[in-house]
Design a protein around this nucleic acid. Structure first.
Lengths: 345, 345
DNA sequence: TTGTATGCGTTATCAC
DNA sequence: GTGATAACGCATACAA
């Protein structure tokens, strides 16, 4: 036996001897419908266990009430928090989320974009993969008349809605904080420079040094150190220099900061007295390492909510009157033990 | 100007002076179609930037190629890992994920279920919220002919597909391990007993005690201690008993285990020599606390993949020939410093 | 207030 | 091989 056919508005109409359109109206509490038929329709719908077919409804209405989200990895704290934020805000408005992960691969990202366009989502929210390349696929989202919102890792050349952190400024603040703590040779672990956010973190680092009239030392800048392992590796190199750094800004992530910490402890280097460490993202574990790690909170859940709210605010406007717009969320420097050598008793 | 109408198969048909049905066939490389027209259609489709309307296609075909996932919280390590696993496996098969979070609320969970039924998803994957109550809404999923797969937190009375851990067994193993380490008074932090998984963890604890002929002591069992804060609170009470425990099995989560650790350290109690601690879930941070925390790895990403594979395997069968089936994934005890007092030098 | 007719974009079933 | 046509389930313009 085949799975039983689901009841439609026609089944209800037939049973009540009225037109399907009336059923539709009654169900949507739409036009001025007789209270009695409205009641009857609802009762019968419940009785027959009727469920709207959102597919059909959306097809007819030309909207999907769905937001597509593409992130490099779903199971990364920052991203899952953003997603949770988007979900919370959009659910209230009756919107659903379709989630895809690009796994940091351009090819998969393109596939995801196409799937979401095909699904006729009303909006695509994306944080681009690290692989880089051109953004023709994102342009085609815009061309399809679908609202595009970039967040965190954005392609800045694309004129879209963007929700980002004030990355450069907070990075500058973090490095300035280390300088004020008396650190003299501050190293940088940097991320892939084809992503703007990592460029900006580096820029903040450079500006802080400049502002405090400190020299920029290329041997203190380590490329592509954005995992715990790469961070650890870079740290070993740094600490074995003739003139090793006395602080490290792991601008890529808290994971690389953790790599730094582990290497330092293994080498018997005292944190924060001999080496200051600052990470990025405020991962849960930064609070509980010993010493705890200074880091930057990106307010990821808020970011998600902001994204959803931005979409709903811009939703009404039709494609041609859309203006690019950037919302900046001010991150916050969380000073912990790993850079705090002045307040120590 | 309204957002420009998207091109349909009719636009292609018109341009090539053939029937829309032929376009459809060509696009799907379906029935035996002339190679030349096939080529032409594909070329024109690309030229006009044609994108299928999955909504329409799905409506016609009566399937959605979509899997709905409901979890208490998206941004919780275990769940985001499971989701990542499901995504990875189902993406390959051309399936999309719609994600909802119940926020541990029964009411929202019911809403999520309804939304997903309305969306005509092909399968609903759920880990039920802690609030409990009856499972009529899940029954209605089954009644709608939608495949239902429960994981981790399952309602065992419902005859559905289930993917779970061997919870009781691994809990027993964890407690046995502590006993073998020489701990004599082992306390339990337990979770909401309306959820089977927490019942089973307790059961494992009890069985381990029994097996080793150790007394069960009710004052060593703390109810509802499933956050870091509640874990800490419970620990304070335990450690202030006339006869305090010398080990704590934080069966609810690593977060409560962390609460235990912090309280112990604050009270100057040495871990593991004076107090053994075992958590649950293998959160990233358990590896980097000092001492590192013994815990249980649930293989969450594998669990996600298993769920997706199970769905695809059962997919062909129609609703009436579906049999309940439970797949058990063997978790693994990860012994770390917090319970290891024998191997110490 | 209600019914009739039509279309959303596809695909499947016929004919030819 | 290809074309015409109906149908998926719903919502709306229009008529009544």
């Amino acid at each position: 036996m085949k799975p039983k056919k689901r009841t439609t508005i026609y089944d209800i109409a037939e049973k009540l001897n009225i037109a399907a359109s009336s059923v539709s109206r009654a169900l949507n509490n739409n036009s001025i419908i007789n209270e009695e038929t409205r009641r009857l329709v609802h009762a019968t719908a419940a009785e027959l266990n009727y469920k709207v077919n959102t597919l059909a409804s959306n097809l007819r209405k030309g909207e999907s009430k769905t937001i597509g989200v593409i992130v490099p990895r779903i199971n990364q704290n920052f991203f899952s928090n953003v997603i949770a934020g988007i979900e919370e805000a959009s659910y209230k408005k009756g919107y659903n989320l379709i989630i895809c992960q690009s796994n940091e691969l351009r090819e998969k990202e393109i596939q995801c974009v196409n799937t979401l366009i095909n699904q006729h989502v009303d909006c695509i929210v994306i944080s681009v993969s690290a692989e880089g390349g051109d953004y023709a696929h994102l342009q085609s989202v815009i061309d399809s008349g679908i609202q595009l919102i970039q967040f965190d890792r954005v392609a800045k050349e694309l004129e879209t809605l963007k929700v980002i952190n004030d990355t450069e400024q907070i990075s500058m603040k973090a490095v300035s904080h280390m300088i004020e703590q008396g650190y003299k040779r501050i190293a940088l672990l940097e991320g892939p420079q084809n992503l703007d956010i990592f460029k900006q973190r580096k820029e903040g680092y450079l500006k802080a040094l400049k502002k405090h009239h400190m020299p920029v030392n290329d041997e203190l800048i380590v490329e592509n150190a954005w995992t715990k392992e790469l961070g650890a590796e870079g740290t070993k190199r740094l600490l074995n220099l003739p003139q090793p750094p006395d602080a490290i800004f792991a601008s890529t992530s808290d994971f690389s900061a953790l790599g730094v910490l582990e290497v330092a402890l293994a080498m018997g280097i005292k944190v924060p007295s001999e080496l200051g460490i600052c990470g990025y993202s405020n991962e849960a574990f930064t609070e509980i390492t010993s010493p705890s790690i200074t880091t930057i909170d990106q307010f990821s859940i808020d970011m998600g909510k902001t994204i959803a709210e931005l979409f709903f605010k811009e939703m009404g406007k039709d494609a041609s009157s859309r203006k690019p717009k950037t919302i900046r969320i001010k991150p916050s420097l969380i000073i912990r033990a790993s850079t705090n050598r002045k307040d120590k008793k």
